[in-house]
Design a protein around this nucleic acid. Structure first.
Length: 289
DNA sequence: CATGAGCGT
């Protein structure tokens, strides 16, 4: 019983504190006027002040004009666009967004899994055979054995105009400012060219591949490029990423167009503090395959 | 500590 009395007492104390709030129902209701044509909204409300006196509080705010002013002029322009699609019958400016029920058919030349359209009657024998016969090496001509890129003779092959590694540069020009290898070369220039400088550049330059380890978790390819491009044109950057988690595996590769640049990068960046870790930069052993 | 994806003439 004593305990009950005590809690009762505490509740009375709480009630006394909340007294003003409890008497709010005695006050006239809050009234809102507007907003008027100028966007002015007036709110009139009553409350008790600290001495328990009833006071009237009037708040005036401007709503619509301000909201209008926030729209950029391009947004205002877009509002004036005629409606289209399902909204054609809406008034201009009436509704800003609506869900479209239109069906938009995406066309593909060939849906995945479907067969190429074949002239059924004539029945091209090559078309029905799969895999092997389609795999014809363009370098040595061998069928069904390897792809062109895997050809054991690929480094001995005469230069072709395709499969050229090219360094990514901002303006699309090559390292010397000239046209990038692999860009279209008119036949006149192709046939006439007597000494073709750097024709072995067209081979995959995996020898200029640099392995970077001890990368921090959030270092990505653009970061690596930023870091390594100061040494010379970079033909590829790669950061190994865990396919499942998407997080970096902490190592990557940078391929340089020129071996000397790779050497410089190794000597300058190996042991370089980057993103709170010490980088290890060294020659990469060529990828198996 | 540590060596990369997937495309397909």
């Amino acid at each position: 019983m004593a305990a009950a009395a005590a809690t009762q007492k505490i509740r009375w104390g709480e009630l006394e504190e909340d007294d003003a709030g409890d008497l709010d129902f005695l006050l006239p209701p809050r009234v809102v006027f507007g907003p008027d044509e100028n966007g002015f909204k007036k709110v009139v409300e009553y409350r008790f002040d600290d001495e328990g006196n009833k006071v009237k509080v009037t708040t005036t705010t401007r709503v619509r004009k301000l909201a209008r002013a926030r729209l950029s002029k391009s947004a205002l322009e877009r509002r004036a666009w005629p409606k289209f699609g399902d909204a054609v019958h809406e008034d201009v400016g009436a509704r800003l967004t609506m869900v479209s029920t239109e069906e938009i058919v995406l066309e593909r030349p060939r849906a995945p899994g479907s067969k190429a359209e074949e002239p059924s009657a004539s029945g091209d024998p090559l078309a029905s055979k799969s895999g092997a016969v389609l795999m014809v090496c363009r370098t040595c001509g061998k069928k069904g054995d390897h792809w062109t890129s895997k050809c054991p003779y690929k480094d001995l092959a005469p230069p072709t105009e395709t499969f050229v590694d090219r360094p990514p540069t901002a303006d699309g020009s090559g390292p010397s400012g000239g046209p990038v290898k692999g860009a279209y070369v008119p036949p006149s220039l192709r046939a006439g060219a007597t000494d073709r400088v750097g024709h072995d550049m067209r081979r995959r330059n995996d020898e200029n591949s640099v392995r970077v380890t001890n990368l921090s978790e959030d270092t990505r390819e653009p970061d690596l490029l930023e870091l390594f491009r100061t040494f010379g044109p970079v033909s590829r950057v790669y950061v190994a990423v865990d396919q499942k988690t998407g997080s970096s595996r902490g190592f990557g590769f940078v391929n340089f167009v020129h071996r000397e640049d790779a050497e410089k990068a190794i000597s300058k960046l190996n042991g370089y503090g980057y993103d709170n870790l010490i980088l290890r930069v060294e020659w990469a052993t060529p990828r198996p395959n």
